[in-house]
């Protein structure tokens, strides 16, 4: 995968939440996909994981059962030696964690139209947040909306522009209650994004509000 110049990164709260393992699966997928594309955040994650290691070291030790070590040793000796090397993925648009959820790359996505030229594919995750791939045709706008919770939008291809800035491949926008925006896909290529929310979006116009009931965004 080609490393592009990434300008918009994960927040410390998201990095710490991912390091701690407390984010919903939908957010984990967006975070893992961004980190696959972004060395800055990969390095920052390493540091937040180090904090976790120190917190663990500091925990008052709790005695293990007397035969715990012998048990562990027996498990090691009895386990079949299966070290399946992970097949090295060929280059494409989607980083490995996303490919796992799509069962392939961009060409395997089953798009469904959701109105205004925009298409989506919802990816199956557990735990109170949802994540979808979005395809916004070049030059098209996503209806003006706000957020009840947190929305993470990671650009995988193309770019979009909203009231705050331009977001290109690898960039992630972290939006919360105080952001109302109308993302517009740049001219040129279709904009493909991975977007996760932990609460339904708040569309400001009536028509998308009605459509929302049918597309579950």
């Amino acid at each position: 995968m080609q490393m592009t110049k990434i300008k918009h990164h994960l927040t410390d709260a998201l990095l710490m939440g991912y390091a701690a393992g407390t984010l919903p699966e939908a957010f984990n997928l967006v975070v893992a996909t961004h980190i696959s594309m972004c060395d800055t955040c990969r390095a920052a994650l390493a540091e937040f994981e180090a904090v976790g290691g120190e917190v663990m070291l500091d925990a008052e030790p709790v005695d293990m059962a007397e035969d715990a070590l012998a048990d562990a040793m027996a498990r090691i000796m009895n386990a079949p030696q299966t070290s399946l090397p992970k097949a090295k993925p060929a280059g494409g648009v989607f980083p490995a964690p996303l490919r796992d959820y799509v069962n392939g790359d961009l060409d395997r996505v089953k798009w469904r139209k959701i109105g205004g030229g925009v298409s989506q594919m919802v990816l199956k995750t557990e735990g109170g947040a949802s994540v979808r791939l979005l395809r916004i045709p070049a030059g098209t706008a996503v209806p003006d909306h706000g957020h009840r919770g947190t929305e993470l939008t990671l650009v995988l291809q193309g770019a979009f522009v909203d009231e705050t800035d331009r977001f290109g491949a690898g960039d992630i926008e972290v939006a919360n209650e105080d952001l109302n925006h109308t993302p517009v896909a740049e001219q040129g290529a279709d904009c493909i994004c991975l977007a996760a929310t932990d609460a339904p979006l708040r569309f400001n116009a009536l028509l998308p509000r009605i459509a929302q009931r049918f597309i579950g965004i």
Partner: peptide, 16 residues
């Protein structure tokens, strides 16, 4: 910080 890593805080409760 401990509470964040023990899983008692959501990401929006984690202080920057």
């Amino acid at each position: 910080i401990e509470r964040a890593y023990f899983g008692e805080l959501s990401h929006s409760e984690i202080a920057a």
